[in-house]
């Protein structure tokens, strides 16, 4: 393994770390969704199962952007596209 490969691997690791910063957004979004769902259950406890279903579906959709960042990080670390 020569210097160039090590340099590219290090830069890939830094890039992977930067890519998962994308997790901040979905974290905030899911927290807001869960908070509002808790408030809704407090106001109308009878609709708990419907509220939970809607919350989980919405959170899963909000999670997608974070997963794209995670996917970029995984590609950089495991597939190492910059070394090809």
């Amino acid at each position: 393994m020569n210097f160039d490969e090590n340099f590219i691997l290090g830069c890939s690791a830094i890039g992977a770390g930067l890519a998962v910063i994308a997790g901040i957004g979905p974290g905030v979004g899911q927290g807001i969704a869960a908070g509002h769902a808790a408030a809704a259950v407090g106001r109308n406890p009878g609709a708990k199962s419907d509220i939970t279903t809607t919350m989980i579906t919405g959170q899963a959709v909000a999670e997608t952007t974070g997963l794209y960042g995670l996917l970029v990080a995984i590609l950089l670390l495991f597939v190492k596209p910059l070394l090809w």
């Binding site: 899963a60 999670e63 997608t64 997963l67 794209y68 995670l70 996917l71 995984i74």
Partner: peptide, 9 residues
């Protein structure tokens, strides 16, 4: 991608 990335992670 959502299903794939969740299971893969």
């Amino acid at each position: 991608l959502r299903l794939f990335a969740n299971v893969l992670s």
